Structure formats: C-alpha cells, structure tokens
Simulated assay, not measured.
Amino acid sequence: MCGNNMSTPLPAIVPAVRKATAAVIFLHGLGDTGHGWAEEFAGIRTPHVKYIFPHAPTMPVSLNMRMSMPSWFDIYSLSPDAEEDEAGIKSASKNIKALIDQEVKNGIPSHRIILGGFSQGGALSLYTALTSQQKLAGVVALSCWLPLRKSFPEAAANSANKDMHVLQCHGEADNLVPFMFGVQTAEKMKSLINPSNITFKSYRGLPHSVRPEELIDVKQFIEKQLPDISDE
C-alpha cells in the first residue's frame, strides 16, 4: 500500500506552495480514492503544508456483498456491536505508520504531521494515532467512528499522543455512519486523551458527506496545529 504495493497507485499529492514544513495525510472513505479529496483540499490549502492522499487497496468488502472496491479493511456490518476485521485494521494501521515514517525521512518531523480521514479513513486515522509511538500534531476525523473501541484503553498504552488535538466533525443527518456513532466516539476519545483537546462539531442537515463550512473548520484546525515556522 501507499506505493509499496504495485497494485496500489502512489498517493495523490497537493504540494506545498513553498518549502513544506508540515504535512497532512488524509485517508478517503470506502469505495473512494484519494483524488477527490486532493481536489477538495487544494481549495483550502495552506502554503507551507504538503497534503498526501493515499489510495486504499482494492479488496472484497463483506458489507457490499463481497464486491471488490477500494477499502482500508473489511467491514462486516454497520451495526454498533458488529464483529470487526481486527487483523485488517491493524495491518492497514501499520501501513499508515510506515507512510508517516516516510515523511519523517523526507524531513518533516512527526509532530508536524496531521493524520485525518473521512468515514472508514477517519476511523483508521483515529485508531492509528491512538496506537502510534509517533507523536503527531493531531487528527481530523470526519463522519467516522473508533474501530476496535473495546481494545482501548489498553491498545493505547504506549501511544505518544495522549495530548494530541482532535477535530471530529459529523453530519446530524448521516444515514450511513449515524450521528450517534460520532457522539459516542467523541465521548470515548475523551477517556483516552486529554478531553480539553477534543473538538466535536456537528452540522445540521448534513448527510454522509462534507460541506464548505466543514472544510473551513478543517482548514482552521490545520493552520492552528501546524503554524508556519518558516520565518522563525
């Protein structure tokens, strides 16, 4: 994945306008690719930030009658108590951590990297940040949930991100990942990291998608957590 697997294309990139001193790695949702999100973020870009949009590998997805599509891991059901693809989630998380390592090798320290995603990608970004020994600047979690939530807090025992900042956004009219999942996830997150660092924003009438005001909130969060240090 993320360029290491010949069957998965290289990530879409929105380069920094000038020298990149920070990065955002953003993971798309089920059945999608990184390209659409690259276009969305190009409209809210910050000059010193590099934006990276990996593409999930194609695999059969149980939720969609085993049809093959881009997916970070298998999803069996959207029921709150559904069995989860633990091995797939952990494997995907390992790949995302490797992508973070690659950016560190490229010269961007991990504490200047924000991890984020939408829906399944947001779920993976939360899990990865909570179980990572790489100190991150924060997480942007859109219309998602915390996977393997029953494995916490033990799964986060060695995490470097107990004080990370999280922006969680969810549409109140979400018909795929119910709004209540977002609310419950935010409450769970408050028990795992510094609760004062969690911002939960809801959007009236918003289904399982994004809208301009939400993207503005994302832009402001990124600029606050990844300030321009080029003049320092």
Rank of each mutant, 00 (worst) to 15 (best):
P178Y: 13
N161H: 02
G171R: 04
Q225K: 15
A82F: 10
D231F: 08
R66F: 12
D174H: 11
L167K: 00
F53R: 01
S191N: 12
L192K: 06
N5D: 15
E86I: 08
G171M: 11
F179D: 02
V24I: 10
W145R: 03
N197K: 15
L136K: 03
A129C: 03
A157R: 12
G122Q: 01
D74I: 11
Y76L: 14
D81C: 08
D231T: 14
I96H: 02
Q184P: 01
E40P: 01
Q220G: 10
F41G: 00
A16K: 08
Y51W: 13
A12S: 12
V166S: 00
G121M: 07
L124T: 04
L10Q: 15
H28C: 10
N197M: 13
E103V: 05
A98H: 11
K97Y: 02
T8M: 06
Q184N: 13
D32S: 14
H28I: 04
A16H: 06
L226P: 05
I100A: 01
A186Y: 01
P60N: 05
G121T: 05
S191T: 15
Q134N: 11
M6F: 12
R112I: 09
F221I: 07
S125C: 10
E223D: 14
R149A: 14
G34A: 10
G122Y: 00
I113C: 10
Q134C: 03
L206H: 09
M65C: 08
A123V: 06
D228S: 06
A56R: 01
V177H: 02
A87P: 06
N194V: 03
V61G: 00
G3V: 05
P11N: 12
L148S: 08
A92L: 09
A137S: 13
S119P: 08
I52D: 00
Q133W: 09
P54S: 06
S79L: 15
Q134L: 11
P153W: 07
H48V: 09
G36F: 01
P109K: 04
F118Q: 01
Y203I: 10
A160M: 07
L226R: 03
S196W: 03
Y203G: 07
D217G: 09
V139Q: 01
G31Y: 09
K90P: 06
I108K: 03
K105Q: 12
A87D: 15
A156Q: 08
Q102M: 13
T185E: 10
F181I: 07
H165G: 04
K90I: 12
G3A: 10
K190A: 13
V14M: 01
I44E: 01
S202P: 04
N194I: 02
D228M: 08
V61E: 00
I229N: 12
P80D: 13
M189R: 01
P227D: 11
S209A: 15
L148C: 10
E172P: 05
S196E: 15
P60Y: 08
V140P: 00
N161V: 00
G205M: 05
G116T: 01
E83V: 15
S79W: 14
K50Y: 02
V166K: 00
M69D: 10
E103M: 03
G182A: 11
A22T: 09
P60G: 07
A173V: 02
R18Y: 06
I222M: 12
D231M: 11
E214Y: 06
K150Q: 14
P57I: 10
